[in-house]
């Protein structure tokens, strides 16, 4: 599949899948164009999103909760901030429960992924996905879409961790271990400390970090979306 990435851009691939796909939540999602790569970053809507999961492997682990909020240009909108618990089909491993605090009995009252995924896709429509270390969210979404709908997930992605790495490289600084963690990166921009490991708090934290990173881009012209997204 990876060859398509180099032959066709994201928007072309979206169009292609839209024509191919049967009706359903994923097709609904694909019907709205992605934000244009050449747009001024402030003209773009982003969905700051975070998952808490049973582990880091999208192929074997499960999503336990999702939190998201919209970043509209240079502001984070709390009005549609959402947090949803997802019912896993397996017991929650103890090692991950320690981190996110979601226990079996609480998760049992939650919704199955097939009900939550359409909500997430709907929220993502026409937006860029925004997360800290976005590969996790992207891969989990991709797996979920393939498993439930049989088709891959596509989205322009802004990764605050990748932006942070670029910042270090540009300033020729060495990255030490831990420097790229969300809390540490936020501290560099003078952002307040939040309690970690709640999906919505982390999503908001990533959204705010993005606002700070964008404000700190030293360039004559405001950056465009293509300057900020990672290749997907």
């Amino acid at each position: 599949m990876s060859i398509w990435k180099y032959l066709f851009n994201l928007e072309e691939r979206r169009n292609w899948w839209t024509r191919k796909m049967p009706d359903g939540p994923l097709r609904d999602y694909y019907e709205t164009p992605f934000p244009a790569r050449d747009s001024d970053w402030r003209q773009v809507d982003y969905l700051a999103i975070d998952f808490e999961t049973t582990g880091l492997e999208a192929s074997q682990d499960q999503i336990l909760s999702v939190g998201y909020a919209t970043v509209r240009g240079d502001r984070l909108i709390l009005g549609d901030a959402t947090h949803i618990l997802i019912r896993p089909t397996v017991d929650i491993p103890e090692a991950s429960a320690v981190v996110h605090g979601i226990l079996d009995d609480r998760a049992a009252g939650a919704q199955p992924l097939e009900e939550v995924l359409p909500i997430i896709l709907h929220a993502l429509k026409g937006k860029a996905l925004l997360a800290h270390h976005a590969a996790i969210e992207y891969e989990f979404l991709n797996h979920a879409c393939r498993n439930l709908y049989g088709y891959p997930f596509l989205c322009p992605v802004v990764d605050t961790l990748a932006l942070e790495v670029r910042q270090y490289r540009m300033q020729d600084q060495a990255i030490r271990s831990g420097d790229l963690r969300l809390a540490k990166a936020r501290a560099r921009y003078g952002l307040p400390r939040y309690p970690a490991h709640n999906a919505l708090t982390d999503a908001l934290a990533a959204g705010e970090l993005f606002l700070a990173q964008a404000a700190y881009r030293r360039s004559k012209r405001p950056p465009r979306l293509k300057d900020l997204i990672v290749v997907s």
Binding site: G79, A110, E115, I119
Partner: peptide, 23 residues
């Protein structure tokens, strides 16, 4: 929160519980 994002098909929201509202 969800309604602000747009319309959710009734089938997908069937199991949203009160607990979610507290969350």
């Amino acid at each position: 929160a969800i309604f602000k994002g747009g319309l959710i098909p009734p089938s997908t929201s069937a199991n949203l519980s009160c607990e979610w509202e507290q969350n």
